[in-house]
Amino acid sequence: MTYIRFDGWLGHVENFFNMIAAFSILALMLLAVAQVIGRLLFNIPVPGFIDITEQAMAIFAFAGVAYCQRVGGHIRMEIVLGKLSGRTLYFCEMLGVLLVALTVALLIWGSLYHFERSLMIGDSTMDIRLATWPSKLVIPVALALLLLRLLMQVYGYARLVADPTREPVAVPLIADVEETARHEIEDALGEDAVKGDAG
């Protein structure tokens, strides 16, 4: 099925972007260590540390956003949704995701404008004159990936609205408290430890 294949392909791209975000955080942490050690021990700070940090923030703040949406990692208010089920739940989820998709589309338009403006005027940072357009390009690209994920979820929920007995594909599902706790324990201790306690 084309829908499932596209979901798999999109998942690989989201994983790649998420890894970029993770490595940018790691690189920034190592740079911060070098900054502290260099300043304290040798009185030689990393040149342009603030500029580099400012530009890197766009990467780790936005690159993983589509991955987070796919796995349902964003903060949600489930007071009402948690009490719904079946077609009503899927319809409300679809409506919410559709509103978010429209908002993200507007954000893409706005961020593209700022990227183009930065590129045209040759905007740069204050200290070491880093060009700002690469970090400003990250934002519309990451948001475009998020928009694709949201559209996939709108379609996935629309399938479930049409037939609630279908298997959910490409949509995050609400987990109850017990299931959430079990997943957190598995992440912390490993799946074998949980199975051993259950046995």
Rank of each mutant, 00 (worst) to 15 (best):
C68R: 09
I174W: 03
A193F: 12
V154N: 04
D163S: 10
T125D: 00
A188I: 01
F17T: 10
L89T: 06
P47M: 10
T180C: 04
Y155W: 14
Y67P: 01
H74A: 06
E167K: 08
T125A: 10
G48V: 08
F6W: 11
S24D: 08
D176M: 08
S85H: 13
Y113C: 00
I20F: 03
A63M: 15
G73R: 11
P134D: 10
A142N: 04
T125S: 15
R117W: 12
F115H: 11
P140G: 09
D123G: 05
A58G: 05
E186S: 08
A63C: 15
V46G: 05
V161R: 03
G72I: 11
V13F: 11
S85A: 15
A58R: 03
V169N: 07
H74F: 05
I185W: 02
L41P: 03
K83D: 00
D163E: 08
H74I: 09
M1Y: 04
R87H: 02
A144F: 14
L147G: 07
I121Q: 09
L28C: 02
R117P: 00
R87D: 03
S24Q: 11
Q35L: 05
V171H: 04
L95A: 13
L160D: 07
Y113H: 11
L31Q: 13
I75K: 06
M77R: 06
G110K: 11
M1A: 09
L119R: 14
F115C: 09
A198Y: 04
I37A: 12
A58S: 13
D176R: 12
W109F: 11
Y67M: 14
V169A: 10
A175F: 04
V36W: 02
G38M: 09
G110E: 09
L143N: 09
F6V: 15
A188H: 02
S118K: 08
I59M: 08
M120T: 08
F115M: 14
M77A: 12
F42N: 12
A63G: 05
L30K: 01
L26G: 03
G156T: 08
F23V: 15
V100D: 00
L137V: 01
Q153F: 05
L40P: 00
I128M: 06
V171W: 09
L28F: 06
L160K: 07
V71D: 00
R182S: 04
Y67L: 12
I4E: 15
G110Y: 13
Q69I: 03
V104R: 00
G48T: 05
A32K: 01
L148I: 14
Q35S: 06
L26E: 00
E93D: 10
G64E: 12
G38I: 09
G96R: 03
L107N: 02
M29N: 10
L130I: 15
Y113D: 13
F6P: 01
G199P: 07
C68H: 05
E14G: 00
A66V: 03
L151I: 15
A170K: 01
T165E: 13
V194C: 02
E78N: 14
V104T: 14
M120S: 14
D7F: 06
I128A: 04
D192K: 13
M57L: 13
G122Q: 04
P164C: 02
L112H: 01
P172C: 04
A101I: 11
Q35H: 07
I44E: 13
L81I: 07
L41V: 11
N43M: 09
L84S: 00
L99R: 01
A175M: 14
E116W: 13
G86D: 10
E184P: 01
L10R: 08
L106H: 10
V65W: 07
N18G: 15
V46M: 12
T2W: 08
